[in-house]
Design a protein around this nucleic acid. Structure first.
Lengths: 257, 257
DNA sequence: ATTGAAGGACGGAGGAGCAAACCTTTTGAC
DNA sequence: GTCAAAAGGTTTGCTCCTCCGTCCTTCAAT
């Protein structure tokens, strides 16, 4: 029945144990195992890609019969995920030949970050810092000139979006993910998209004045220059400063420190 | 209908730069979702902790009834995992009051890395680099003096194990995980244990002459000094060099780039 | 009008995980 | 010595997830 498809149930909140340096590592070892179902993982993957603009509004997803094999899941499972995304307004489907599943245009408004997400904001930033540092260093070691040319024009385009935060943020994500792709590391790309998705949940409801975005993009340029010059540590320094700006803003807005 | 026609419409300047880097991000977005079962995750979690020495030989695990609630799984699932670990010789159980499940002493010999693990070695190193960089920077920002004192004595102990690689490696892991704990970030500790587990699988069957271990530990000391002086970027530099040594060795031994 | 490509729906099989018992072995407290 | 407590070991039945296969419906291209 239709109700079987409404698997939007929320997983019970996990009791987070505070890590203590003096204590045994058992806290980390015996922390809850988080086993996501294929359904949940698929909703999160596709939903994040859509929210980040990796799957732009209006674009068509692969046909169900192809997509489910690519994702390595059964078609019925994929359909459950697509149904959930359709119910939340992120995609819609049209039937018949030439039909398919499309990303909504415009997208539904992002919902405000949950209390759980806000409580975890430092952990989120920590993970993101690690990913961005790894990407910056590896990009400085491995990026091709063509990759950097493309990223340069992306940074140029960012300057035209200083007044429109959603547009800016989307191109911003593409720049960071693009740099991750330039490392030729599949796992770093995945980690970057995950980190950017988590960050988007955090910052999408925060005001970003054009001046802030402008100086943020200046850091993008400095980062790309450092990468182009193969200066790993300057790239690391610039990206650290880049993220610190965001963290200062969050630290000012959010409790707990 | 109209919605589909919008796909062809020229949008913003940003749209032109879309899909620029090699291949669409779809490759990453539509990659297989591989959900681990709770059973698999538990075996891996406990097995890694045992192999890394986080649960030292002879130590007792919490009682099944307590451990399963801590891990957030059913007791029967936990028992499946413990049975698997018992069959591989990593733990053994004794019944009756005062009994329990204990880590084997001595541990079974590590089995050689699978072809799959070897094929992924660059990805493994990439992930590890990211984690270690994030940990180094965050530790420089947040570590307490007492944390660093403890890590200093660990580094001192490492110099006494230059002739015994298994012992050295175990203390090495404790040092890296300890630094991660000094960041007060649960996710970084988890990421570090995962990364160290993957690295152990890779390097445990490689010869490590005492001179190599000695210079490796010298880097540990330099790292701790940089962290103590709150010099984030020097910490990042030192850890990068530290990992590069391992990567050069692996690159020389393993095929494929 | 036909056809092919797409989404939509249904039902059964298999397995993972959970929950709640109950059994067996040991040992420390009395 | 007894016994109760604390541990691992066993069994059973249930629920839910996922898979697979099949069939239906829609609709643009031909």
């Amino acid at each position: 029945m239709a109700q079987r498809l409404q698997r939007v149930r929320v997983r019970s909140p996990l009791a987070r144990v505070r890590a203590s340096i003096a204590g045994l590592p058992s806290d980390a070892v015996f922390a809850p195992v988080r086993s996501q179902t294929a359904f949940e993982e698929t909703v999160e993957r596709l939903g994040t890609a859509i929210k980040l603009g990796l799957l732009p509004p209006g674009s068509r997803l692969p046909a169900e019969r192809e997509l489910c094999t690519r994702l390595g899941i059964a078609r019925s499972t994929l359909r459950q995920a697509l149904t959930a995304l359709a119910q939340s307004g992120h995609v819609f489907a049209t039937r018949g030949r030439g039909g398919g599943t499309f990303v909504s245009d415009p997208l539904p408004p992002a919902d405000p970050p949950s209390a759980e997400v806000l409580a975890q904001w430092r952990e989120t930033c920590d993970q993101r810092l690690a990913v961005e540092l790894g990407v910056a260093v590896r990009a400085a070691q491995r990026a091709h000139e063509e990759d950097l040319d493309a990223l340069d024009s992306l940074a140029a385009a960012l300057d035209d979006a200083l007044e429109d935060f959603p547009a800016y943020r989307q191109a911003d994500v593409r720049l960071h993910v693009g740099l991750a792709e330039a490392t030729r590391s599949v796992s770093l790309v995945r980690a970057m998209t995950d980190a950017q998705g988590a960050m988007t949940d955090l910052i999408s409801h925060i005001a970003h004045p054009p001046e802030v975005l402008s100086s943020s993009n200046a850091q993008h340029r400095r980062l790309l220059v450092a990468v182009r010059e193969r200066d790993e540590m300057r790239a690391a320094l610039v990206i650290t400063e880049h993220l610190q700006a965001t963290e200062h803003i969050l630290a000012g807005l959010l409790p707990g420190g």
